[in-house]
Amino acid sequence: MSDRITVEELSELMKKAAGVTVAPEELQRGYDSGFDTFGVDSLGLLGIVGELENRYGTPMPPDAERSKSPRQFLDQVNGALLAGA
């Protein structure tokens, strides 16, 4: 388990926790697009955050579940993981 979430891992989490299949390449192309562009709503994002909290055994930043884009989400989550939050 790495200390950074990649686009590939986010793609897997989107499928597992939100039930939305998006290829990592498509996610990378739409890095600054809203999650709604990919069909992920607020409950889906909450599921992704919950999955990460279970995986790492630590709370994610409160704003992570309100992220608008994959870039914003990964920046917040990876920042917290690197800081040991």
Rank of each mutant, 00 (worst) to 15 (best):
D36P: 04
D63F: 00
T37H: 14
S42R: 10
P61H: 04
G39L: 08
E53L: 04
K16F: 06
V22G: 08
L10D: 06
Q28G: 03
K15I: 06
L27K: 06
T21G: 03
R4Y: 03
G47R: 01
L52W: 01
E51M: 14
G57Y: 04
E26N: 14
G34Q: 12
P61Q: 02
G50W: 06
T58W: 00
I5P: 04
V20M: 15
L13H: 11
L27T: 10
L27E: 02
K16I: 03
V20A: 02
R29W: 12
K15L: 15
T21V: 10
M1P: 00
R55Q: 10
L45R: 09
S2R: 10
S42K: 09
L46Y: 09
E9H: 03
G44I: 01
G19Y: 15
S2L: 07
A23E: 06
K16A: 14
K16H: 08
F35H: 07
G44A: 08
V7Q: 13
P59K: 00
V49Y: 10
S11H: 14
R4K: 15
L52P: 01
A17H: 09
Y56I: 05
L43M: 11
M14N: 06
I48F: 11
L43D: 05
G30V: 12
P61D: 07
L52R: 00
D36G: 14
Y31M: 15
M14C: 03
L27V: 06
V49Q: 08
E9Q: 15
T6P: 00
Q28F: 02
L45N: 02
T6A: 09
S42T: 04
A18Q: 12
T37M: 10
S33C: 09
I5V: 15
R55S: 11
G57W: 11
D32M: 04
F35T: 04
G44F: 07
G44V: 06
V49I: 13
L43Y: 05
G34P: 00
P61N: 05
P59G: 01
A23T: 04
R55L: 09
N54P: 00
L27Q: 03
E12I: 07
D41M: 02
L43P: 12
